[in-house]
Design a protein around this nucleic acid. Sequence first.
DNA 1: TCTCAAATGTTACGGTATAACAAAGTTATT
DNA 2: AATAACTTTGTTATACCGTAACATTTGAGA
Lengths: 144, 144
Amino acid sequence: MEIACFIEAADRHCQQQGVKLTALRRQVLELVLSYTGVVKAYQVLADLQKQRGIAAPPTVYRALDFLVAAGLLHKVDALNGYIVCHHVGCSHEGLILVCGDCGRVEELDATPVLDVLRQQAGSAGFAISQQNLMLTGRCEGCRV
Amino acid sequence: MEIACFIEAADRHCQQQGVKLTALRRQVLELVLSYTGVVKAYQVLADLQKQRGIAAPPTVYRALDFLVAAGLLHKVDALNGYIVCHHVGCSHEGLILVCGDCGRVEELDATPVLDVLRQQAGSAGFAISQQNLMLTGRCEGCRV
DNA sequence: TCTCAAATGTTACGGTATAACAAAGTTATT
DNA sequence: AATAACTTTGTTATACCGTAACATTTGAGA
C-alpha cells in the first residue's frame, strides 16, 4: 500500500529532523493521504471526528501546521487547502499545478523557471528563498 | 498627490476596458491606496464605515473583486489581502515578492515567466489561469 | 416614460483559523 | 520512583474571512 510506504518515509524523515510524528499527527497525515489532491482542514476534521468521535479545529490545525513545517505537506493558499509533498527527502523545488475544479495535483520541475525568477528578483534586490511554486488552473480532464 | 494620479489612470484604464469605475469602487480604491502594502478586506470595510456610516461585507468584497478583475489590484492569497497593482495598463499578472523579515512588498511583471510556465504546464495538460506569483525572500535592506 | 440590466443595499449564514487555558503525556534529573 | 520542566493534546470560545439570496436603486437605451 502506497500510504503505508509514505508514512514509513515520513517517519524516517521526522526522526532525521529530530521531531516527533506522534499518533495524532500520523493519523492526520493518513487522512490527507487518503485523498487525491487538495484537502481542506475541515474535511480532515470531519474524518477525524468519524474515527475518534470528537475533535476540535485546533487539533487538526496544529497537526497540519506540524506536517507543513516538517515538509510533509504543502499549504495551498489559493484554495485554503493542503496537499502531500511528493519530494520528501530530496531537496528539489517543485512546480505544483492544482486543478481548481477537481483538485488534482501535478508536480513538475521548477528549477528552470526558478532560475529565471531568481535572476529577475535579484535585479530588484530580492533574494528569493528555496520554495515550491504553486499555480492553479485546469487539468486536461476538466477542460471542456 | 500620487493617489489622485493613480485614480486618474485607473479611470482611463476602466474606460478603455469598457467597465465603470463607479463612485463606490473609486472610494474603495482610494482606501486601498491610502495604505502602503497589503490591505485586508475588513480594514477597508471599517474605513468605509467611518466614511459612510454603514457598509456590509458584500459591498467591499464586490468592489475589491471588480478592482482585481479590472487589473487595478492584486489579491495576495497567502495573506488574505490586496495590494495595488503597479503595472496598470502594461501587465495583468504580478510577480509579488514579500520580504519575510520586514514584510515589504515589491511587484514585478510576471508575464514573461508565466509564458514559460504556461508552456511547461501545457505539455502536462494543465491550463494555468490568470494569477499572481507570490514568492518569499529577503529584500535588499534585510540582507546583511 | 418605460424597460432592462447593472450596481448596490441588506440580512443572514457558512467556512476558515486562532487565542487562551486545562489536562495529559513525555523526558531528564535526582 | 518522585519531581520538575517541557511538549503535546483537549476544550471552549471567539474572531476573522467570504458569499448566498433577495430587495432596492440607479442608469442607459428603446
